[in-house]
Design a protein around this nucleic acid. Sequence first.
DNA 1: GTCTATACAGCGATAGAC
DNA 2: GTCTATCGCTGTATAGAC
Lengths: 207, 207
Amino acid sequence: MARLSYKEQVQRVREDAIVEAVNRLLATKGYDSMTVDEVAAEAGMAKASVYKHFASKEDLAGAAMVRALDRALAFVDGLREKADTPAIEQLKAVARWAMQSQLEGEMPSLPSQNSSLTASLQGNDEYMDRLISLSNRLSIWITQAQTSGQLNASFPAEMVLYILFARACDPVVAMMKASGQYTVEQILEWALTSTFDGLAQKHKPAV
Amino acid sequence: MARLSYKEQVQRVREDAIVEAVNRLLATKGYDSMTVDEVAAEAGMAKASVYKHFASKEDLAGAAMVRALDRALAFVDGLREKADTPAIEQLKAVARWAMQSQLEGEMPSLPSQNSSLTASLQGNDEYMDRLISLSNRLSIWITQAQTSGQLNASFPAEMVLYILFARACDPVVAMMKASGQYTVEQILEWALTSTFDGLAQKHKPAV
DNA sequence: GTCTATACAGCGATAGAC
DNA sequence: GTCTATCGCTGTATAGAC
């Protein structure tokens, strides 16, 4: 990749500011409540300037999701370097990281159900590439954990994948945190236990 | 309760039509995407007429949620008549009913996180009464199941309750149905298994 | 109470000066 | 590229006739 000119660097910095603002707002208010005026204000520029960088509000959400998926892929790739760790432990580590990111307000969340945004994202190549990459890497671990008896093999691997994605955005952890009675570490431990006990092989064969 | 006059009956019927329309739209599009124009069209009347019955869009959602909670309470009360059924089985039955209702498009769903709607609902007495009633009845079963070793007693009962509510709206079952590869019965079975295995006591004492 | 017509506000997106 | 100012649309809510 060629070295960036000063102008390009400035542009990059400003785009970063925009995407970070979108990330924060998606994590706190959600897509529908977020307005482009707010994004501009948080990023410290005028709304028209935001639209010079991104064509639409949907593109803004797409860029934030791309960045979030990149963070997830980087985390997963870090884990893959420890090749001797059991697949189930790798999956738990990913789930813990995702839940923790959500609790710390770093994970943008989208309406899981029917939104015009869903269709837009499925046409976003950058987003889809990363989503598929992440799914593929997780699916490998899922299959390994199922064949080695660590995960209940009667569940479709596809469902296990859905569950992992869903638990990363599970409102339960946020509600537990909001109750103010428990530490984050304790909440994460409970959430991981209930999730992975539910996916585990019921009567484990001796390994 | 006094007998209703003809006029009151007509009013009741029209309000029912409105609430049913809201219920359908909340189940399919969600609160933010739903417009009062759509509600009026589905209910077969003009928008201004809708506003004669309900003061605001938030009130519409509140009324639909009250009705949904009433359905849930009726189902729970039906179960309570079989007093000899183990508490864990009662909880499973409720979860199954809720998931099935969701899959059939009968369960209105709200944005679980930060919305102006959340605050509005917490000020809605009719809604809060029913929510508390339902929570209380479920909590009794949860405590029973924990003391009898059917549920993992190291989880706060509060968290188990949150998980049950969350799984009733779990996007996973909808995604599995959308994939078109599985029967509804199979999906429900898997979802219940993974949920309740995750909540179960790990090393069950002989009962 | 129901309708048609309209007021009013918020927001996505853009024009045009600099 | 950035700004101010504005367009155009959508959607909540209401006025006023019947």
